[in-house]
Amino acid sequence: MPDQPTSTANAIVERETKPAIWKGLRRRCPNCGEGALFQGYLKVADSCPVCHEEFHHHRADDGPAYLTILIVGHILALLMHFIWSQFRPDPLIFATVLTIVCVGLSLYLLPRLKGMIVAIQWARRMHGFGGKS
């Protein structure tokens, strides 16, 4: 069977998922790693200011919130068990400290996990990210 010529014009460049995830966790553009992924705290920019990769068609939806709840819940469950079994603090102090830890950890993780979800969508060419290579 004769070899058929391959067309490089129609070839799709593979996007690696792991580097994209790390860039997303740093809230950077998954394509170049330089530009900011967000305009504000959770508002994804329409495009990268450096490489002009478009982000307006992402579909992160509720995924980052679910992941944040899952991670924070597991961390707090272990923390509650350890602190209560070792120190038996006053319940009001215990609840206050855990509330502060919960809110702080949630506010820290939410934009990073949203960046990760957008980066995974970009790397896997999901929801309109397949237009460019």
Rank of each mutant, 00 (worst) to 15 (best):
Q4M: 11
Q4I: 14
Q4C: 10
A9C: 11
A11Q: 11
I12E: 14
V13A: 12
V13Q: 13
E14T: 05
E16T: 05
T17D: 03
K18Y: 09
K18I: 14
I21L: 12
I21K: 09
K23C: 03
K23A: 12
L25K: 05
R26T: 03
C29F: 04
G35N: 05
A36D: 14
L37Y: 02
Q39D: 15
K43A: 15
K43Y: 05
A45N: 06
D46S: 15
D46R: 08
D46F: 07
S47C: 14
S47N: 11
P49L: 08
H52W: 04
H52D: 10
F55R: 05
H57D: 13
H58R: 06
H58F: 07
A60N: 04
A60W: 04
P64V: 04
A65F: 05
L67G: 15
T68K: 01
I69N: 01
L70C: 06
I71L: 11
V72C: 03
V72A: 01
A77D: 03
L78Y: 06
M80R: 09
H81M: 13
H81G: 11
F82S: 05
I83W: 10
I83C: 07
W84R: 03
W84D: 09
S85I: 09
F87M: 15
P91C: 06
I93T: 13
T96P: 06
V97A: 13
L98C: 13
T99F: 09
I100V: 14
G104S: 10
L105W: 04
S106Y: 08
L107Q: 11
L107G: 14
G115S: 01
I120G: 01
Q121H: 01
Q121P: 02
W122K: 00
A123D: 00
R125K: 13
G128R: 02
F129Y: 05
F129E: 05
G131A: 13
S133E: 12
S133Y: 06
S133I: 07
S133H: 11
